[in-house]
Structure formats: structure tokens, C-alpha cells
Computed example of a mutant assay.
Amino acid sequence: MSRIYRATDFFRPADEEPIRSVITESKEAVVVGWYIKPGQEIHSHIHPHGQDTWTILSGKGEYCLDAEGTKKAIAAGDVVIAPTGCVHGVFNNGDEPLIFISVVSPSDAGYKLVSPE
């Protein structure tokens, strides 16, 4: 099993919805590369049984903080944490790709889409 990965090998631009590209997965965590084109979004969701931590490598976006749709700007260099059960999602409102690494821990944290209220 490799312990070193080149993140750029996993970023997959797509014209439709952004693609979740798994870099590595164990029972402790799943590490995912995200490439979000301008105008694309990851819809608001929660992980009912775990935390999602994003490290923003490039670009910017509007990060969703709650079910009411409260937003906060995020950009390259930020580390963004959604503790267990916290609503999160992002819209790329910039003019360049929003690229980040997500670590969900544990890997069976679950996923549930959240509708805006």
C-alpha cells in the first residue's frame, strides 16, 4: 500500500457535476480530490457519523455553513472543517477551478443531502 500520492493525478474536471475522486480509503478515513469548475457546486450535505476536513489548494468559493444557506467565503490556503452532522457544501463563484482535498473520517461517516429550508 502506497503512503505517498500525487494529488494532481486524481483531479478530474467534468462539465456536469463535480467528480468525487477517491485518492485512498481505509476504515479510518477516505481521502478525496475535488476539482470544481466555476459555476459548479457540491450540494449541501452532512456526514451523520464523521467529520469532513477540506484543505483548499486553489481557487475560491462560497461555503455553506447551515441548512438555512448561510455562506462564508473560502479560498486557497484555508482548512475548512465540518464536524459530525454539520451541514456543508460549496459553490465555485470564482473564475478559476476550486481545487481541494477532503478527508472524511471515519470512512463510513455516511452521507445525507440537505434541502435548503
Rank of each mutant, 00 (worst) to 15 (best):
V90K: 10
S44H: 10
L57C: 12
W34P: 01
V104H: 00
Y35W: 13
S58L: 02
A67M: 09
H88Q: 14
R12T: 07
I81V: 12
E68R: 08
H88G: 15
G50H: 03
A75C: 15
A73V: 09
G85Q: 06
C64E: 02
H45D: 02
E17C: 11
E16F: 00
G77P: 01
P83H: 03
G94I: 12
K112Y: 02
I4Q: 12
I36Q: 12
M1G: 13
S2C: 13
S115V: 11
V31F: 05
G85P: 05
N92E: 09
S102F: 05
E28K: 10
D66G: 12
K112A: 15
D15Q: 11
G69V: 05
T8S: 15
D9F: 07
H49R: 11
Q40N: 10
P48C: 10
N93E: 13
D78W: 01
G50L: 03
S58K: 12
W34R: 11
G59H: 04
H43Y: 10
H47S: 10
E16L: 03
T55Q: 12
S105Y: 00
G89T: 09
R20F: 00
G89M: 10
F10D: 01
Y35C: 06
G77M: 02
N92A: 01
E96V: 15
R6A: 11
P13G: 02
A76F: 01
H88P: 08
I99H: 04
G59E: 08
V32D: 02
L65Y: 09
I46H: 00
Y35F: 07
C86Y: 05
D78A: 14
Y35P: 00
E28Q: 13
T8W: 09
T24H: 13
P48R: 07
